[in-house]
Design a protein around this nucleic acid. Structure first.
Length: 137
DNA sequence: GCCAACGTTGGC
DNA sequence: GCCAACGTTGGC
């Protein structure tokens, strides 16, 4: 099982909207970056991910789960772009902010810090455990 | 809203 | 295949 982090601007697609989709989940469309796409291609059903609010909020607010393998992105005809589906699993009781992540030495190597602009990122098992603990899980 | 960082595009 | 121009992302 692998761990990931999905970024979304809340005014475009928020955690509340994701939760409203329930178990059916939502296509993670609109990604137009090769590295992010490649990350999605390697995802398996049941992989866990953090849901991060970028631009506003700047914090990890929820846990999601991959519920469909990479498939063509329905929002484009360009065959280069694929995406997975994810569904909300649970809230992070105490959202973990970017400033907290930056201030935590053991999280200094998180992609969130080192690859600021990558919208779909891998998270290591250690990082996952640390963030979950800080988030009250 | 600004702007730095960085990914992508396209001319040569 | 290089690199300048351009567009986008995302923190502040």
């Amino acid at each position: 099982m692998a761990y990931w982090l999905f970024k979304s601007e809340p005014h475009k697609w928020s955690w509340e909207m994701q939760k409203a989709k329930g178990a059916a989940g939502q296509e993670w469309d609109g990604v137009r970056n090769y590295q992010a796409r490649n990350n999605m291609r390697t995802m398996k059903i049941g992989d866990q991910g953090f849901f991060y609010h970028s631009n506003e909020g700047l914090e990890i607010v929820g846990i999601v789960e991959v519920c469909a393998l990479a498939h063509p992105d329905s929002t484009t005809d360009d065959p280069r772009w694929e995406c997975v589906d994810i569904r909300a699993v649970k809230d992070v009781p105490k959202p973990v902010s970017l400033s907290t992540v930056k201030a935590t030495p053991s999280l200094a190597k998180m992609s969130l810090v080192t690859s600021m602009r990558l919208s779909v990122q891998p998270v290591t098992e250690e990082e996952w455990a640390i963030v979950c603990r800080m988030g009250g899980l």
